[in-house]
Design a protein around this nucleic acid. Sequence first.
DNA 1: CGAATTAGGTTTAGCGCTATACCTCGATAG
DNA 2: CTATCGAGGTATAGCGCTAAACCTAATTCG
Lengths: 338, 338
Amino acid sequence: MRVTLREVAEQAGVSMMTVSNVMNGNRARVSPGTIEKVQRIADELGYVPSASARSLATKASRLVGLLVPAADEDSLMISPHTMAIVGMIERELRKYGYHLLLRGVAHPDEVAEALRSWSLDGAILLGFLDEEVGKLTKKTIGAVHVVAIDSYSANRLTTGTRSDDFAGARLAARHLLDLGHRRILFAGPAFSGVGVVHERFEGFCQAFADAGVSRDDVVETVNTTYEEGRELGLVLRERHDVTAVFATADILAVGIVHGLTEAGARVPEDVSVVGFDDLDLCNYVTPKLTTISQDIARKASTAVSILLDSIEKGERPKRPVTIDVSLVERESTAPVRA
Amino acid sequence: MRVTLREVAEQAGVSMMTVSNVMNGNRARVSPGTIEKVQRIADELGYVPSASARSLATKASRLVGLLVPAADEDSLMISPHTMAIVGMIERELRKYGYHLLLRGVAHPDEVAEALRSWSLDGAILLGFLDEEVGKLTKKTIGAVHVVAIDSYSANRLTTGTRSDDFAGARLAARHLLDLGHRRILFAGPAFSGVGVVHERFEGFCQAFADAGVSRDDVVETVNTTYEEGRELGLVLRERHDVTAVFATADILAVGIVHGLTEAGARVPEDVSVVGFDDLDLCNYVTPKLTTISQDIARKASTAVSILLDSIEKGERPKRPVTIDVSLVERESTAPVRA
DNA sequence: CGAATTAGGTTTAGCGCTATACCTCGATAG
DNA sequence: CTATCGAGGTATAGCGCTAAACCTAATTCG
């Protein structure tokens, strides 16, 4: 069936431990000649160590769980932004010899058994609502080492990475203020449990304070979907006081632009729109979307290295690491019309 | 440390096997009273079985590997289309109690050790070039059960699912022919090793035969990227004989539209463009892209059920299952100008 | 009424690997 | 010349679980 250590050992005429040592690069205790011989025999036989046996014996699995929210049992509904991060995380883990167990989570509770059973070395929580992060801590996952991306618990104790949402929103608002806009709509799930968005709202407000401009309350609470954006854009046309919109997600922003356009408004001549995320999509729509760019590669690789440091060296920065963001000016913003 | 079967057994005053039987729903051999007691104690103790130990003992892991091509070590570069499928596969596997090991593959050879070691119950190959599928068969992966999505080996022996590329391309070409177009450019990696694209080319040609129209050779070989599409669009403007383009991927089509537009051509008034995939993106660009829609949910769920049937019942359809496609008319195609 | 079955268990023997302790030389030191 | 040590191994004892064989008392049946 499968070639085992024992067989290699027998063929090579050494003990199993010697083979084990060779395989694990534990070569201090093995003479060069033996190493060569064992290596050769192992290759000839096509020996591949069994991860389960090793994991059982060592209690380490070189396996990291990646948990992403699944709207419900019927759809994973991973956003493009999330998916991009998944890809980067996989690459990063692979680089360090770890494997990735991808798991959608519909109900935080259901996860426990599934994940504990694999004795994961660590876990990455991607884009969970704050309240859920708590339910998914080590108690449930069984992994001591957990990092969260794009989410943080209320008390900010969860290790992980996230973009500087505050600064991003501030940048976006400042950009619009600089262009002369005063009535700027904030569109997003502003008061939901999503901490990330809350930060963005705060940053947005900060920009007004910075500029010494009083902020009239122009907030529209919508989910970050294209459709809701489009509907918002449609009705927005009638509110001639609003000359600019900051949307908390690119998809939403694109919806708004389209709604606006459908209703007869021109973007950016009549209304300026800024998004958040910098998806590829931004370059494909007309007008190209001005947005806040998140460095997702850094977000992912930093999260992974925090996790691996934690696993391998026990080092743990206790607070989330904030990744810088930047404004990318494209075509959806312009000076306010006179 | 971790609660083991033995502890549960001791607490419950029964043998380990009895607990094991209860845990695995092997209840035929256990009395109701004992079941209840063991269950209660296990819950109280927070017992979670160890997947590695179980896997070691049974040689089954309830783990499925999902392999996706990684352009090189530095980027996973998963296309949106691929990512969407990944999400669907995860959901489907989860439904049946399997776990997903996601793995990017840069060099087919490197995969062997990593995956064999996990003694996967099965593996799904997603979007590999035909030549690579061979290298990734059971010999390397170590899994007897393998399905491929969006790829098939030259001899068509690989089990799996793929969209009806032939029919799709034929549909696209017929649509353009029906609109009166005669000089239709085929844009895509036509002669690469990608079988999928070859099928699309065949289907494209078939539509001309169906319509009794002779097909002048208008083929442009490009990779399916936005940028290459844009460049193609830019130069296409000068070839006034070409009135329509069929691109083998939406991203490419969008690039072409943009190139064309930049060069001063109008889409669809001057040139019609049809894509392939039906990404969300199609609805977000201007004009909205006419394209061939793939039923990725079905593609994913069918692949998973083929795989699980193969794993659990040993059933194996030997040829790939073809998933129907349909034409989605949007705004990027129009009758040829007089 | 004795043999055969069945319900409800238990015991034994690993699955493939590794940590830990232990052994056995020859070289080195005092 | 004995004590010490390091290089290069080996032997033992699990990790947590399950398949398979085995046991025992109560029931069924010809």
